[in-house]
Structure formats: C-alpha cells, structure tokens
Design a protein around this nucleic acid. Structure first.
Lengths: 175, 175
DNA sequence: TCCCGAAGGTTGATGCGTCAACCAGAATAC
DNA sequence: GTATTCTGGTTGACGCATCAACCTTCGGGA
C-alpha cells in the first residue's frame, strides 16, 4: 500500500495523546501524506514534460484544450471558468499571461458590455495540438497504466465520494 | 462515480481523431479531471480553515508538525527535506518566510559548517498545537469520513501503484 | 598540500493561485 | 427614470513552487 513506508511520526497531527476524538490514526495519516506526495510528484512530472515539449504549463494546457474544443475556438470567460472550475481572478491572471505570449486573445463581447470572450490563436492551436498526444501518453503512462481496471474503478468511486462530501460540506459557490 | 458529470469534451486531449494510440478514453479523461478537482477543492478548503483558525498555511503546518515531533524540536534542513520530500529551495524559501513570522528559527550546525538546523519556536509550537486538532478533524470530515473502509483500501492501493510507477519512471533524485 | 568535485543551503526571477478591493454594465426595484 | 443590487471581469498584493545560478564547506585523491 501507499502507507507504511515512512517512520510513524504523527503524535501531534494524528494524536494518540489525551485524544479529544476525531484525530487521524497512524494508517490514515500515512495514506494522507502519500496522497499528497502522489499528487505533487505526478503534477511535477507532467508539468516538466509539458514545459519541455511545448513550453507550456498544465494550466496553459487546460485553457488551450478547452478553447480548442469550443464552437468557434472561443468561449466567454464565464463559460471557460465554468468548464475549468476556476476562480475568476485565477482565470483573469492566467489569460493575461497567455495573451502576452500570444497563445490566446481577448475580445469584447457584443451582446454584453461586461463580458469578455477568450479566443485561441493559431499559435495556441498548433501548440496545444502538438502537445496533446505526448501529454496524454504521459498521463496514461504515469497514472492509468499503473492501475488495474478494478483499481481504477475503486479510485473513481472513492474520488466521487470525496467530491460529493465536499459539495455538501463546503460553502463553495452560490447555487 | 467521479466521472460522467461533465459534458464529453475531449477530442484533442483524449482524441478519437486519427488516433495515434495511447490517448485517453472518455472515461479516463473524466476520472483525470475529477481527480484534479478533488485535490484542488480539498486543498483549498483545508487551507482556508487552517488560515482562519491559526493563520498558517498547509505548508507551514507540515513544517511545524515535523519539527514538533522531532527529538529536540529541531531538525537539520536536510532531514526536514527528507521528511517532507521537498526540494531544497522550496524549503529554504518556506523557512525564510516562517522565520520572519517567528514560527521557526535557524541555527548553524556545529558538526557541519554547511548545514543549518531549523528549530520550532514557542510561538510555533503553540500555534501548531492549537491548529492540529481542528485540522485533523477537517481532514477526517472531508476525506476519510467520505470513504468506506473498502474504498480507503482501494484508494490506498491505487495510490501506491501510481507512486511506485513514478518511482520507476521518473528521474526524481539521486539514490 | 592543493585541487576538485560533491553536498548542504541560499538567492533571484518568474509563473501560479488566492484574497480583497474595485469597476463597469445589466437587471431590478420603486 | 433613477437608485440599488447583481454579475462579469480586472487589478494589486502576497504567499507558494520551480528553476538556474551561486556560495561555502567537506571529503578525497594526485
């Protein structure tokens, strides 16, 4: 398993001391740390490859991929945000940086004076097309190919349960 | 499951087009996105609570927790890095910021002129003690309590498989 | 002894992500 | 038809993370 590799150190965090309930037990603590490690290492590896291959980050890639799929290679910022589930300022900053590099462009929206539409440029399009296959292959290699079908199902289910919990418990955004 | 909630949009990324092999299928694509979403939302929620309760970030917490567990409430930077699996510059920056806020202190190491030892201060200690229980409770609430024992096992196994794969495939660091 | 390479840390630049504050246009109330 | 509120988006400040370059000290050789 994930766990059991590191020395057991969790008195504060996982606390067996005086225990006022709901702390983590040793195994949970290990699973939790390993989960973070997995995510971080995976993200790092993918980012490095993407940067190497195409000179873009995963965030760049996500934006470009969403736009490349969009009706006229453009989306209103609102839709893009919805698609990516990002905060608005995050998107604004990201788009600004990408615009500076010529990957996307911003236009005003005729129907709504407030809105902005984001459009992928030719450069952006060829960049994402060039990167997509290698990136997908990496994700497959490092993640999906490591899992048996049963593990994939289990992972999927477990993740869904957590997401559902987050939906219930966290303020998040308006309905 | 995780997947199946979003509109199927993945031609570029997951590509059924011309397919040169090893792309992601629709389900894999959805699982992948959902995995990221889960991680991001979880991390966000935990960070917000920690910030609210104790005025620290998760990174701060990890450092403080490691030091609080350590023999004399101090560790050599090298050991801390090993424990957290962080890059050295990441740790250096983090420690600098925490030192400025009075959470930790840096001392020279007598045995090795190059080394630095990081020590948790009284303030740091009471901060992390104050935060630990609520934080653990949050992790339990948002993550572990969402999972059945079987799902936890599955998650653990799947994570382990991916980590193992990463260990094999990625340069990472020297032995 | 001197030189050289490896190890332990630091620094600066830059991109990423959040928060809080802000602004303009649109909808709605009255 | 004006005041209020809501919505869509931007900005600035700040913390976080990586990379590349650097500095010191340690440990071995030749």
């Amino acid at each position: 398993m994930f766990s059991g590799r590191a020395a057991p150190r969790a008195a504060i965090y996982a606390g067996r001391v005086g225990d006022s309930g709901n702390r983590l037990d040793e195994r949970e603590y290990q699973v939790w740390r390993a989960f973070h490690r997995m995510h971080d290492k995976l993200a790092l590896a993918l980012n490095q490859h993407l940067q190497q291959d195409a000179g873009i980050s995963e965030s760049d890639f996500q934006v470009l991929a969403a736009l490349a799929e969009a009706p006229r290679h453009a989306l209103r910022a609102r839709e893009l945000r919805e698609e990516l589930q990002w905060e608005k300022s995050r998107l604004a900053h990201q788009i600004r940086r990408m615009e500076q590099r010529g990957l996307v462009a911003r236009d005003d929206c005729p129907e709504d004076g407030r809105a902005a539409t984001v459009r992928i440029t030719d450069v952006g399009l060829s960049t994402v097309r060039g990167a997509a296959q290698a990136h997908a292959a990496r994700v497959r290699e490092l993640f999906f190919d490591a899992l048996t079908p049963a593990q994939l199902d289990a992972f999927d289910e477990a993740g869904a349960a957590v997401l559902e919990r987050l939906r219930q418990r966290c303020p998040a955004e308006a309905p």
